[in-house]
């Protein structure tokens, strides 16, 4: 009987933890989005203050942000130094595709990411700045909806995890 109780407690706790881990996906997505917003702001400030080479801007951004977004800019900086690609957009797209499995972004955020890449090929710095501010406003809108979704998901998955654990115990015992 004691072993049954310990087993039941283990099942319930492990399914609760599994539920919480599912809900963390939204939290990681929010974090990545925040880092990308920071990266776009740093890019916008860098091009308004001076006109350094794109590889230096990417490397600077990769040092100042965290997570998969930093890895994207680090790879983009290395590719830009190598000068093997015809355009900055292609460099950025390749860097994103290389790190896509580390990102928690969905379709909307991936569109923002690729449109930032297209922004890099614009001729004038004021056009690039305008593009960057449009991307930042899109991100702000997405973030607001995501925060509410993350709160709901956290409550849903943790309670669903506990209920599924209890259901499994009832079925098995």
């Amino acid at each position: 009987m004691t072993i049954k109780l310990i087993g039941a407690a283990a099942i319930i706790i492990s399914s609760w933890v599994a539920g919480i881990m599912f809900s963390m996906k939204s939290a990681y997505r929010l974090e990545d989005l925040e880092e990308f917003k920071k990266a776009v702001s740093i890019f916008s400030d860098s091009i308004s203050l001076s006109a350094p080479p794109i590889s230096e801007i990417f490397k600077d951004i990769s040092k100042r942000v965290n997570g998969p977004v930093a890895m994207i800019f680090d790879d983009a900086g290395k590719m830009a130094e190598g000068k093997n690609y015809p355009s900055a957009e292609e460099i950025f797209k390749n860097a994103v595709d290389k790190n896509i499995k580390n990102l928690y972004f969905e379709a909307g955020e991936m569109d923002c990411l690729y449109s930032f890449g297209k922004n890099l090929d614009l001729e004038y710095s004021h056009e690039q700045k305008n593009g960057a501010s449009i991307i930042i406003s899109n991100i702000n809108l997405n973030q607001k909806a995501l925060k509410e979704q993350a709160e709901k998901d956290k409550r849903l998955y943790s309670s669903a995890g506990v209920l599924c654990g209890i259901l499994m115990c009832v079925i098995l015992f």
Partner: peptide
């Protein structure tokens, strides 16, 4: 009792999922 417990748990889980918009 097992059938009753499964019924109650499924009903609660159903409500939780419906309210979260996961019909």
């Amino acid at each position: 009792f097992q059938i009753a417990a499964v019924g109650i748990l499924v009903a609660v889980l159903n409500q939780v999922l419906m309210r979260a918009g996961r019909e």
